[in-house]
Design a protein around this nucleic acid. Structure first.
Length: 801
RNA sequence: GCCUGGGUGGCGGAAUUGGCAGACGCGUCGGUUUCAAAAACCGAUGGCCGCAAGGUCAUGGGGGUUCGAUUCCCCCCCCAGGCACCA
């Protein structure tokens, strides 16, 4: 029989669906919850999705074969800007555009044969789903996590509020007019920053997370331990935040952020103009390295430690929302302050001695405190608590901790999102929509184009309602939620997706949570992956979930780029459709080509070359089974013959098991498959005895099972050819035989001064002394007088001469 | 600018985490087969010097630690991702 991928795929898809193979089991066995980040349906899925979901699929299938209860669900994160933009462009409703894409994407994923339990599919735009997103909002609201405050938005005179993505070089992406920053009233925030300490501390619990991701989160949370010091501004307190109170005697100016409330009182025209200009700059531009500028406010402040009068400056590198929005300038010991002082001719006063005078640059390391009153002579690290103690006694300061983490802005003035379930009553203020009235449906409206305010605000039939408290006329909140809210809890809905009474049952949550493996891109480090940790903690504290960290192990898959290195995406027009490739080459070839390309965690520039190579491999495998299986018929899968072949089979098994357990570098497992086939070719197999037949049978069985997670159709077919009954995924993972995988002899390289000079073969268990003797006896080492011989048993001999 | 990764033959990548650099694959070259080609199969394949044996250089660049460095440390260059309304 010829290898016919289409026939194989049809055959096994049919069997899988009849057997409900991917229906989530419920048994006392060990559970495994493998989750890939759900998809944004922006068209058909592309090779990036194909790769990401293929990785999760291989893990899920491996776990099934290990005999675990696997939960492997999928869904769609479908609210948000792209749907609105596409709908406007194509003159469609966002819902219709989204539904179409979900359907196409789902078809492609099913085509791939991914082991999702589609009965658990969730879609964030379904009222059955967003009902509980609203419930979650209210849970936070009722527990005191939500508050309303003004926020700053990008404002275009024509198009109204713009997302950052819609602002290019300070101009509107559509009409190219100047975009300004404008405050809007009454947007909802969550007190995310109040969780900062816990989010930071609990990073230590994330033992299964990549270190860079954890570092990224620590930096994002940005904990700084320091103190506040109250300077005096004409009788008013001007509080600075510093992590270096030991340098307070060296303050030669103080800088206040342009948005600081006190700055609004400055009257000099150049100061007013500076503040106006700063308000239009992006935060990134303001904090970029390079020239820092500022303006003298005309006022002076008094240093409470030494009574110095120093000038107060306004500069936009100081941000109002971080710390106290005021910093003290210590040019001698801070690089940025040094540059600022040089630029404006401000004095530089060294107060930490590092033996570095005269100052040509800031001395930021520790040293001995000098010119520092009573503390002169104190090592600066010891000086920090002493200064704090002193100012505290004086009532001029206090120890504090500040975080960079900002509160989470939830409100979006847009149509395509989850409505905020709040009713604003003129008498009673903001009221939660009662549980029985959830969900607040997102109405289908003709004009959903965002302008100056939420499009829903212009729909009286949506807006007008009654206050649940007093029954009087009231208005709904017109805004929708940040889509990060939708994606912060989907992992819980999967455990009980059809529940109509609760977001999920606590029993199901206890069974399945936390997620054992979460696969998604590293670009989510600071946002999604922190938001969902925050939500996990709120849900834990309110008794809804069993752990306050949602995910045990996190894995970042690499991105798929085109040949020029640009990320593949629909919007760039460089997306390659997996559907077409699967049509042309077959699913297994396509999957193997992706796995063979590179380890799963590095970015790749996708090239089609791998497909032909994977196809050759598949045909080689197919022929291998076709030819060998009849010749081992009737034998038990066990035998001692063909040692090199069996050795390679167990090395393959070891590699694949390791790959599926931890690094997901399936490319190395595929290399072992090639080695196995190469070894078989070299041996010219011709099994006659039962032992020989058994040995080959064992090799074939290992090969079939090891391939199954990566190439499920072939895995099933090979397993069946070998007489396996039912699905290979209901069989078992092969048992690794260390003795079979081990060589009797090893080749030992011999170096002289670290350079390779010779090699010899020795028994695998040779001792250090034996190896040394064998090495020194080699003819290549005849002229060498060893000063020292380093022997690493099992590895090498290095002669130092 | 800040934070986080990364840089290994013509290409994708491997290297048991300090121990033979380049596994395995792609490509290229040579051969077998063929009227011819494709496919398949066999062999070669990091650079330089050499007929060869062999020598020598080589993991972005420069320095260091070590018997030994792709791996650890310091400095520099380049690329990618994130920077709070893209998700």
């Amino acid at each position: 029989m010829k290898y016919d991928p289409k026939a194989l795929e049809a055959k096994w898809q049919e069997r899988w669906s009849q057997a409900q193979l991917y229906h989530t089991p419920d048994s006392p066995r060990k559970k495994y919850y493998v989750l890939e980040m759900f998809a944004y349906p922006s068209g058909d899925i592309h090779m990036g999705h194909f790769r990401n979901y293929g990785i999760g699929d291989a893990v899920a299938r491996y776990r099934m074969m290990k005999g675990e209860d696997v939960l492997h669900p999928f869904g769609w994160d479908a609210f948000g800007l792209p749907a609105e933009n596409a709908a406007i462009k194509n003159k469609l409703q966002p819902l219709d555009w989204t539904l179409k894409n979900v359907e196409t994407g789902k078809k492609t994923l099913q085509r791939m044969g991914i082991s999702y339990d589609w009965d658990r599919e969730v879609r964030t735009f379904d009222p059955d789903y967003y009902k509980w997103t609203q419930w979650l909002f209210l849970l936070l609201f009722k527990n005191g996590w939500a508050y309303r405050a003004p926020s700053m938005v990008n404002w275009c005179a024509n198009d109204g509020i713009l997302a950052n993505e819609q602002v290019h070089d300070g101009k509107c992406w559509r009409c190219h007019s100047e975009v300004i920053k404008k405050p809007i009233e009454n947007t909802w925030f969550f007190k995310y920053s109040a969780m900062a300490e816990r989010l930071n501390n609990d990073i230590d619990k994330l033992t299964g997370w990549p270190e860079p991701t954890k570092t990224g989160q620590r930096n994002w949370i940005g904990k700084s331990v320091g103190c506040e010091i109250d300077f005096d501004l004409e009788g008013k307190k001007l509080t600075v935040f510093t992590t270096r109170p030991d340098t307070t005697w060296g303050v030669s100016f103080v800088v206040i952020a342009p948005e600081h409330p006190l700055a609004a009182g400055f009257t000099a025209p150049e100061v007013k103009e500076y503040i106006r200009r700063a308000s239009q700059k992006s935060e990134r531009d303001r904090t970029m390295e390079g020239e820092k500028d500022g303006v003298f406010s005309g006022q002076y402040v008094t240093n409470p430690l030494n009574g110095d009068q120093v000038p107060l400056w306004v500069a936009d590198y100081v941000l109002a929302h971080y710390g106290t929005g005021v910093v003290m300038g210590v040019p001698a010991h801070d690089t940025r302050d040094f540059a600022f002082a040089k630029k404006y001719g401000l004095p530089v006063k060294a107060v930490i001695s590092g033996g570095h005078e005269p100052l040509t640059d800031a001395w930021t390391a520790s040293g001995k405190m000098v010119h520092s009153g009573d503390l002169t002579g104190t090592p600066s690290p010891e000086g920090i608590p002493k200064v704090i103690e002193f100012i505290e006694k004086k009532g001029a300061g206090r120890p504090t901790i500040h975080y960079k983490l900002k509160d989470w802005l939830i409100s979006r003035q847009r149509y395509w999102g989850c409505p905020i379930p709040i009713i604003h009553c003129p008498k009673d203020g903001p009221q939660a929509v009662p549980d029985q009235d959830l969900p607040v449906h997102l109405p289908r409206v003709e004009n959903f184009q965002p302008k100056g305010r939420s499009p829903l605000a212009d729909h009286p039939e949506f807006m007008n309602t009654t206050c649940p408290q007093c029954g009087g006329p009231a208005q709904r909140d017109p805004d929708t939620m940040d889509t990060f809210m939708c994606s912060s809890w989907y992992l819980y809905r999967y455990v009980d997706p059809k529940n109509t009474n609760e977001p999920w049952s606590r029993d199901e949550a206890r069974k399945w949570l936390p997620v054992d493996l979460y696969i998604g891109g590293a670009e989510h480090t600071n946002m999604h992956l922190l938001y969902f940790r925050f939500i996990a903690k709120v849900l834990f504290d309110t008794g809804w979930v069993p752990t306050d960290e949602p995910v045990l192990r996190l894995y970042h898959q690499g991105m798929v780029c085109d040949e020029t290195g640009a990320i593949m995406s629909k919007s760039r027009g460089n997306a390659i459709s997996p559907s077409e490739i699967m049509d042309e080459w077959g699913v297994d070839v396509c999957r193997l080509a992706m796995f063979a390309f590179a380890p799963s965690d590095i970015d790749i520039k996708w090239k089609q070359d791998g497909l032909a190579s994977a196809q050759r491999l598949v045909i080689r495998l197919w022929d291998f089974f076709e030819e060998r299986v009849p010749r081992v018929a009737g034998s038990a899968p066990k035998g001692a013959a063909y040692k090199p072949l069996r050795q390679q089979a167990h090395l393959l098994l070891k590699r694949m098991t390791a790959a599926a357990e931890q690094p997901l570098d399936f490319n190395t497992a595929i290399a072992e498959v090639y080695k196995l086939l190469n070894a078989a070719d070299a041996l010219k197999l011709d099994p006659k005895t039962d032992d020989e037949k058994g040995a080959i049978h064992e090799v074939l069985l290992i090969l079939a099972k090891v391939l199954a997670p990566m190439a499920p159709f072939l895995g099933e077919e090979f397993h069946e050819m070998l007489g396996g009954k039912g699905s290979v995924f209901k069989s078992s993972w092969p048992v690794f035989d260390a003795a079979a995988a081990k060589s009797d002899t090893i080749e030992i390289p011999v170096q002289v001064n670290g350079k390779l000079k010779a090699k010899f073969t020795a028994p695998a268990d040779s001792t250090q002394d034996q190896l040394k003797a064998l090495a020194l006896a080699l003819p290549e080492l005849a002229g060498v007088t060893p000063k020292k011989v380093i022997v690493v048993p099992g590895k090498l001999v290095n002669v130092v001469a």
